[in-house]
Nucleic acid binder design. Structure first.
Lengths: 341, 341
DNA sequence: AACTGCATTGCAAACGTTTGCGTGGCTAAA
DNA sequence: TTTAGCCACGCAAACGTTTGCAATGCAGTT
């Protein structure tokens, strides 16, 4: 029962020819006669021969495998991205080695080592929240293992990345609300430490100045993204002198927390108080009370682009360019989409 | 810049000793003197030596890698499962090779081949909806590659699997509603073709007979799981002679579609009409109108158990047992959880 | 008849490791 | 002084494949 996989060697022995001939025959090497080529292929088919990739990997120094390290597989954003990555890699005949860091820098480092040992050809990374040093990734450069960062990218020069800029989307979001007649627009933003928080704030301010309205700092409150924190933030906004008639929330979780809370306060969603959020949950289609519009961050697209870049890097390396111009920096512009209900 | 990774051979050369000695030294083989052992380790550290796994794989015939094939990575259920799989595998020092079939039998077959070529030590599979033959999986037995199926399991004998039985959960769900005083309990079930549909129906009937109530077939309607289909199903139920005061829905999507529709009909959710569903979305905490209770299917636990089983198989193989008793058949009982609001 | 050239094929090294077995030197027992 | 025994290490094969180069045979050319 325990059949060992057929090897090239066995085929050679049966046919009374050398392994090199078999190898070449299977690869349609021109220097092999058609008759032997046919014989070899026939027998290979009968014996159900499948090349042993591990041997090929060793021989070629390439594994046709890319590593993916991201914080949390079960997050909707990342599961969508990994889905894209797998799809894209598959098309190019690459396989995906997967690992999650759980936002733990230590584990992230270990994973990088593991990926290196597995001799992945390249790496796709979305860095953890708490990661402060990127040396473990940068070390890979020495081994000629290209790294492409996506979504959560480190703030260091000379890297390849694809990310989504929240500023444009935010401008669109605020403009959308302004066009609808809102003048007091609140924002429940994230923690000050996150770049994403800054981008949102910038977008907000730009949208206001662009429309010649003055920016009221008290209308932007930050929160810790928890339900409790969101409630407090909303209360704070509602208690402000200029009570907002619309609110931009940091993400869908915050939006839903806020909507839930507002409902309890007998505020009519999107009538008394209009919501716009940043899409990170696929649930919009299933609910009654949802933000009127969402800023889309295109996780699938990000995963796809990042993989494309990595593929490109893998097929054109050797040029060994290290000049800054040789680095891919793809920014996907976030985009406001109105939610149909 | 393009540093080649250090090899055992280089270490041997520098130290003027043989590769075998280096190899053994690094593995703390007792037959190596402490002084050489120390020297080797020191130099290995300095040169940042990392073993080349592909070489080890080839040598050992084991890859410390498990393949995972599932239908759709971006589905919440599966992304939760894969998260568990990765976590569990990581603890045992295994790596995860990931692929999605998109419910395409043809692609599924190709993926199995690919996994085989990559010489994964074992495989974790949740089969596609349309998969009719399981030969491509069963073939792996010949190569001594164990396969553990989870969640969506094929109806064939002599396989290892872990799945979640919906019957118990359904009985609990119906009993829960009965206890709350409901007598006319509707069910929006899935397509007749799915096993899951059958399990739900069975549970429903058992719960009724257990409580000495008679089962009214007109209260169970099947739907195609789309929004449109759900609306029709709900309308049908509401138009029935015995208008139900509670409804069990096939899954969260269906539940939310139904709730949305019911809301439009000015039916008060969980008052005029109480809902119970099967959990497959993580959104319950973020919404206002949600089912009163959900039947939990434990995707994380399923992934974990399946991986544990595979690990066990990998470490105790060679016993080569083929007797039915040697097959793991783990049924996780679904369980009703009340949703806090 | 000798030579050139091409079409086929084989040899052997290489990729980086692990591991069974052999071998040298040394210590301690006889 | 011999010998048994152990310690520490080296040799070489093996894992399955690819590939540069050499070798063979044969037809065609001069």
């Amino acid at each position: 029962m325990q059949t060992k996989p057929t090897t090239i060697k066995e085929i050679a022995q049966i046919l009374g020819i050398s392994v090199s001939t078999v190898s070449r025959a299977l690869h349609d090497h021109p220097s092999i006669g058609l008759t032997t080529r046919a014989k070899v292929k026939k027998l290979a088919g009968e014996l159900n021969y499948e090349p042993n990739q591990t041997a090929i990997f060793l021989q070629k120094g390439k594994t046709l495998t890319i590593g993916v390290i991201l914080p949390e597989l079960s997050e909707a954003f990342f599961s969508s991205a990994i889905s894209a990555i797998e799809d894209t890699a598959y098309k190019k005949n690459y396989t995906v080695l997967l690992a999650q860091s759980h936002d733990d820098e230590q584990k992230e480092k270990q994973l990088v080592e593991k990926m290196k040992n597995h001799r992945v050809d390249g790496l796709l990374v979305s860095v953890g929240k708490n990661t402060s040093s990127y040396q473990h990734f940068e070390n890979l450069k020495k081994y000629n293992i290209p790294v492409v960062y996506f979504d959560r990218i480190p703030a260091i020069p000379n890297i390849h990345y694809v990310a989504c800029n929240m500023e444009i989307g935010t401008i669109e979001a605020v403009s959308y609300l302004l066009k609808k007649g809102h003048r007091a627009i609140g924002m429940i933003n994230g923690p000050q430490t996150m770049v994403a928080t800054g981008e949102r704030k910038e977008g907000y301010i730009k949208a206001m100045t662009k429309n010649r309205l003055k920016y009221d700092p008290s209308l932007i409150v930050s929160c810790d993204l928890t339900e409790e924190g969101t409630r407090k933030a909303l209360d704070e906004l509602l208690a402000s002198k200029r009570k907002p008639t619309a609110i931009v929330t940091f993400n869908d979780y915050v939006a839903l927390f806020a909507i839930k809370h507002a409902s309890k306060l007998n505020i009519r969603i999107n009538k008394d108080l209009e919501f716009v959020s940043y899409a990170n949950l696929p649930l919009i289609n299933y609910m009654e009370n949802i933000p009127a519009a969402s800023v889309e961050q295109f996780p699938y697209l990000q995963g796809q682009k990042a993989t494309d870049i990595l593929m490109d890097l893998l097929h054109h390396q050797g040029t060994g360019g290290n000049e800054p111009s040789a680095f891919y920096k793809v920014i996907i512009e976030s985009q406001l989409v109105e939610n149909k209900k």
